[in-house]
């Protein structure tokens, strides 16, 4: 029986996203335990595959895979998983992971665990621990049967070591099902790519829905300007159009490592906390004393966010 572990590699620019390397690290442990190989699957144009610590890198090329669409990538992934029948498929719990994990589960008839923060081998069984209710509850689950798919939350495992020898690259012929794909990539929304890079900012002022109104964004902006900091926020405030998407800090946004992260009206969903954990100093303001942001922050206050922003701004300006 096949004991391979297949990692769905997710390309971003000229490299892969961090979770791809993390999954490869855990895939190596699991494949060793089961006596299988580590396979990495790259759909569409691939960054340098020699970065991937896998035994075999599988690539699939087709015009329909040149830019990401859920329909084309799901069909290609299904084709490879059905052909190779690896014991376990690991993918990141990202947008792509959400798209492809569910489709693979249904089409390949394999159990799927989402939001996994741990995946381990118990003899032949696949066992995972998952985050539910925004990380407030953990569930330990066993996958029935000997095949499975786990969508893993970023940051759950240390990244794989840089490979000492390059992996074997195998080209897989694209499935004919790709010819029937109707979804068409339409590029980036206009004006989204021209903004400052908040990952470079030494200090960040961050805002969440707790600011209550778009009018209050200017109050936070005033503090950011006074401090020489950049303004950033949660996925929600970016969804609402209060800030451009380039300012979104979190798992599905950018990860930041500023010297100081000052958060206002952010409750601290796991999505957001994942993006700020490596900050040197986190100071959080939220009126709910039980908000999870206070588990990630070194210092906190339940002061009213707007009043605190104004008090800070006037003090900084008066220096």
């Amino acid at each position: 029986m096949n004991h391979d572990v297949l990692v769905l590699a997710e390309a971003a620019g000229d490299s892969f996203i961090d979770p791809t390397f993390e999954l490869l690290g855990r895939a190596r442990d699991l494949a060793t335990a089961w006596g299988g190989r580590v396979l990495a699957l790259v759909l569409g144009p691939s960054p340098d595959p020699s970065m991937l610590n896998a035994d075999v890198v599988l690539t699939v090329s087709h015009p329909k895979l040149d830019a990401y669409t859920p329909e084309a990538h799901a069909r290609a992934a299904q084709h490879v998983v059905a052909e190779l029948d690896p014991k376990l498929v690991l993918l990141a719990n990202t947008t792509e992971g959400m798209d492809l994990g569910a489709a693979l589960s249904l089409w390949c008839q394999r159990p799927l665990v989402a939001y996994a923060v741990d995946v381990r081998a118990e003899d032949d069984a696949i066992v995972a621990t998952s985050q539910l209710f925004g990380g407030r509850l953990l569930a330990e689950v066993a996958l029935e049967g000997d095949r499975g798919i786990c969508a893993v939350v970023g940051g759950s495992f240390p990244p794989a070591r840089v490979p000492t020898r390059p992996p074997v690259v195998e080209v897989v012929a694209p499935p004919v099902s790709l010819d029937g794909v109707t979804t068409v990539p339409r590029g980036m929304p206009p004006g989204e790519d021209e903004d400052i890079d908040i990952t470079k900012a030494p200090m960040l002022v961050a805002i969440g829905r707790g600011l209550k109104s778009q009018d209050n964004v200017a109050v936070a902006q005033a503090l950011a300007e006074a401090l020489g900091a950049s303004l950033s926020g949660t996925s929600q405030v970016c969804d609402l159009g209060w800030l451009p998407r380039t300012r979104h800090v979190g798992k599905s946004g950018v990860k930041v490592r500023p010297r100081a992260y000052l958060s206002f009206g952010i409750s601290g969903a796991p999505e957001h906390l994942e993006g700020i954990r490596e900050s040197e100093l986190i100071i959080a303001c939220n009126t709910d004393e039980a908000a999870p942001i206070f588990d990630a922050a070194q210092y906190g206050t339940t002061a009213d966010a707007i009043e605190l922003l104004r008090a800070l701004t006037s003090r900084v300006q008066q220096r």
Binding site: A12, P185, R186, E192, R245, K251, S252, G253
Partner: peptide, 10 residues
Amino acid sequence: EFGGGRVGRI
């Protein structure tokens, strides 16, 4: 919406 502030239209 994807990670890293990336978005795509389809």
